[in-house]
Design a protein around this nucleic acid. Structure first.
Length: 828
RNA sequence: GCCGGAGUGGCGGAGUUGGUAGACGCAGGGGACUUAAAAUCCCCUUGGGGUAUCCCCAGCGCGGGUUCGAGUCCCGCCUCCGGUACCA
């Protein structure tokens, strides 16, 4: 052991040894732990957020491995996606080339931090041997009826003549050319995730180890809403009818108009010669406004009368049908019944356009309301009035009875609506998984798309001339590659065209966790046998920004994989950890713009990986945002130096195995401190409270440092304490820990040595400190044997001079006794 | 607006089922060592007050409440962060 701690010299040494000994491989036997971090999109450089993300997983992986679990801890690359393609449009470099370079750089940086990955399982989603299984899933899901074509609105840049992503729209303008963006309806491919809405919702109750904030956001995103669908026939038409969805069927008799979305499919049948142009103009104007709407502004409610009247299903009254901007076409049925007396939004609209207001609910207690004098809608539940046979029912009863009555009449009935929408997954990109579909005019005249046979997978991305194909303009890139587009029909063998759209990259990340189990398997995406043993993922670590989209797709896909017999679990992840952001030293998000970016590479070079690791874990609990702090990193480096000096100071007397005698005096003190620290550190890591675990180790070092052991017993105790110290530190500062462990005689790495067990007798407190309160105020403290009973403690407390003075002349009304904690005398 | 989360010393944070608020670290102050500096080590460090090795009062965003006892539970607010967009 050298006298001075030089992390740069010991870190590469241990990294090489771990690799040589293949310490991070799955053994295939024993109790498993699958620790996973969300895999990165390999952009140029790794940043501190990545470091933290993988560190949380790495500390756990190292801990569980030491505990004897068979740990899987893999890493891969979410390599497909928009940034590589956009960069290619800029500089003409092929996305594959750029990705390869980025991955190499990323991987080298990861290795310098000392993560314990099994690199043999590395995967990249841009690999045809990976994305072929995306295509395989597409085919299976199409057979299951989970894939369909639909029309959807997209951002369309008229100047680029292409579809652009939401994030490419800046203030309603195209980021690239600065032109206006319009909404355009186009066909797209979609997954029917809504078939699983109820299950996705119900299963949230089983995810007890997920943060509440995530399950609650998912619940809200799925947005189950029980209510009723109600059919309003259109006056003067035999078959035209509007179906509305409402949660307030009890207000049905208060309906004075009906509103449809500006792009509702029935509009052509609602308008007449007088209103046709006005309604069309209104729809156009709204589409443009919607595309350019600022996020923080609520547009004014605007509408236009369609010219049609709807017939009330009970009263037969004719109410006007309006088109308005506050009804959205892809929620519910795209049409609502308006009850201005009992819905604030309807109320405001009715006032603006002079529509009738009719009250049909009165407060449960109190007088009925005067519709003509209303200032706000009365939105509470109450008692139904002026509602034919339903009058007198409570709102809750009314909703049920009206639902049933509608069903009997064949004009609707109870219905549930979800806010969640199906997942449109086709993209007009090159750097993505090609959708395995072919169009043949002969066999498929309606152009529904013929699935490519499984045996023809993968459908590979073609090699391209980047400058010609990745222009960011006009038709999708793949359409510009004739060798790709032109193919033969799998049915008739005649000429056919390939689908030129690719898949959303969210598809790649729905099932990668299962691919790590058998990354080179070429007969199926997942080895069902291995999956049965290894799933679910025990701990999944990632950013809270994925709380809804990724994690819902991920859960959905797992349900599908279960139906396909690939996995036995319905939920992919047992415990979810959402880690906070690493901000710059100024507390702002690290960004080039603020000049506050801290590079892991620089930090590792300057302080060593262990100091960087210790700081990131010590700065705060995993789920909280932390600010980078050079001073704190230096503090951590100082701490590791103190550990080193402590180990070095005692290494000379630790070589020979000395008998662990002398369970008294300083030897005992040393052993107690070490075992107590070990007990706390173990508990803290189990609770994912890494910052306090490190604090415990610091305390131990502070306790041990001034001790200068003399004699065999003390020296043996100190050697034991330092070996335990190394073990405790090994998940967080593994290189330093190994070096110390080796210097203290270990021949095996700490992962093999295992996590030490603390001696409960040594860890236990022999004496405890009781707080003595009088009327809840702290008035003194006493030291008592840990096993003293209530009467003994109270007697000692009363004997204390200060307490006696406080109690003098007063009547004790109550004595509160909390074992090992406190006594509270309530006096009058 | 709605949904979710957070608010504790000069700073990052600790306080696990209600039980001694401020562990641990940083910064700061004082001291030791040194010709000097760095490094290291030791002591102090929430605020206010006092009859000062000890004691009192206040204190966890604000205002109430429950309780012997509240940072922790309940009600009403404020501020900040994240998500979302007229959701019928």
């Amino acid at each position: 052991m050298q006298e001075t701690y030089v992390p740069q010299s010991i870190e590469p040494k241990w990294q090489a040894r771990w690799e040589k000994e293949s310490l991070f491989k799955l053994k295939g036997q024993g109790e498993k732990r699958y620790i996973l971090e969300m895999f990165p999109y390999p952009s140029g450089k790794m940043h501190m957020g990545h470091v933290r993300n993988y560190l949380i997983g790495d500390v756990l992986a190292r801990y569980f491995r030491a505990r004897g679990f068979d740990v899987l801890h893999p890493m891969g690359w979410d390599a497909l996606g928009l940034p590589a393609e956009n960069a290619a449009i800029q500089d003409g470099r092929h996305p594959a080339e750029r990705t390869r370079e980025n991955v190499a750089q990323f991987k080298a940086e990861m290795k310098s931090v000392g993560y314990s990955y099994d690199w043999d399982r590395e995967l990249a989603t841009s690999d045809p041997e990976y994305y072929r299984w995306n295509q395989w899933f597409f085919l299976k899901m199409r057979q299951m009826g989970l894939v369909y074509r639909r029309m959807n609105r997209v951002n369309w840049c008229t100047s680029c003549a292409t579809v652009i992503a939401n994030e490419q729209v800046k203030d309603g303008l195209c980021e690239r050319c600065g032109c206006e963006v319009a909404l355009k309806r186009m066909p797209e491919w979609a997954f029917r995730i809504t078939r699983y809405s109820q299950k996705l919702l119900d299963n949230l109750d089983t995810l007890t180890d997920w943060p509440d904030r995530v399950t609650s956001m998912q619940r809200h995103w799925i947005g189950r809403s029980p209510g009723a669908e109600i059919v309003f026939k259109i006056d003067g038409s035999d078959d035209a009818a509007l179906t509305v969805f409402t949660t307030r069927a009890d207000t049905l008799f208060g309906v004075t108009y009906v509103v449809v979305a500006p792009d509702h499919p029935l509009i052509p049948r609602l308008v007449n010669d007088e209103t046709r142009d006005a309604v069309a103009a209104f729809a156009d104007a709204q589409a443009k406004k919607a595309a350019q709407a600022k996020k923080d502004e609520e547009p004014d409610k605007e509408g236009v009368f369609t010219g049609a009247y709807a017939i009330h299903p009970f009263t037969g009254a004719k109410v006007p049908v309006w088109a308005a901007n506050f009804v959205v076409s892809d929620y519910g049925t795209g049409a609502v019944m308006s009850v201005p007396a009992h819905d604030q939004r309807d109320f405001e609209f009715a006032q603006k356009y002079g529509l009738t207001i009719r009250a049909v609910i009165r407060p449960a207690e109190g007088d009925s309301i005067d519709a003509s004098a209303l200032e706000h809608a009365f939105e509470d539940d109450g008692v139904m009035i002026d509602s034919e046979g339903f009058s007198g029912l409570t709102s809750a009863e009314g909703r049920e009875k009206i639902g049933a009555a509608l069903q009997q009449k064949g004009l609707g009935g109870p219905a549930v609506t979800y806010r969640q929408r199906d997942w449109g997954f086709s993209r007009q990109r090159y750097w993505g998984t090609p959708i395995p579909v072919v169009y043949c005019d002969k066999c498929d005249p309606d152009h529904e798309g013929i699935s490519v046979p499984e045996s023809d997978l993968p459908v590979r991305m073609p090699d391209i001339d980047v400058a010609k194909v990745l222009t960011g303009r006009g038709e999708p890139p793949l359409a510009k590659v004739p060798e790709f587009v032109n193919t033969t029909c799998p049915k008739c063998g005649g000429p056919a065209r390939r689908e030129v759209e690719t898949m959303d990259t969210f598809v790649d990340s729905t099932w990668y966790y299962a691919r790590y189990l058998s990354p080179r398997l070429d007969t199926a995406p997942v080895d069902a046998e291995v999956a049965a043993r290894m799933l679910p993922v025990d701990i999944y670590v990632g950013g809270p920004e994925h709380a809804v989209m990724h994690l819902l797709y991920f859960r959905f896909w797992t349900m599908v994989m279960k139906e396909l017999g690939l996995v036995t679990v319905e939920e992919p992840v047992k415990r979810l950890v959402t880690q906070g952001i690493v901000n710059g030293p100024d507390g702002r998000k690290m960004s080039k713009r603020w000049g506050n970016v801290v590079s892991p590479r620089d930090i590792v070079a300057k302080y060593g990986a262990d100091a960087a690791r210790t700081f990131v874990m010590f700065a705060g609990p995993p789920e909280k945002d932390i600010d980078w702090s050079d001073e704190q990193v230096e503090g951590c480096a100082r701490f590791l130096n103190r550990v080193w000096r402590l180990a070095f100071a005692n290494v000379g007397t630790a070589r020979h195995d000395k008998p662990m005698g002398g369970e008294t005096g300083r030897a005992l003190e040393i052993r107690r401190a070490a075992h107590r620290a070990l007990a706390k550190v173990t508990d803290d890591i189990e609770r994912l409270s890494f910052n306090t675990a490190i604090a415990r180790v610091m305390e131990l070092v502070n306790t041990l440092t001034p001790m200068k052991p003399e004699g065999d017993a003390e020296e043996a105790a100190m050697a034991e304490a330092i070996r335990l110290l190394a073990a405790m530190l090994s998940p967080v500062a593994p290189h330093l820990a190994e070096e110390i462990s080796e210097s203290y005689g270990a021949t095996e790495c700490l992962q093999i040595q295992g996590w030490p067990a603390f001696d409960p007798a040594l860890a236990a407190q022999t004496e405890v400190n009781y707080a003595i309160q009088v009327n809840g105020k702290l008035r003194g403290q006493i030291q008592v044997a840990a096993d003293a009973d209530k009467d003994a403690v109270i007697a000692l407390a009363k004997a204390d001079a200060k307490i006696a003075a406080q109690l003098d002349g007063k009547t004790i009304r109550k004595e509160v006794f909390v074992p090992t904690r406190l006594v509270n005398f309530v006096v009058g």
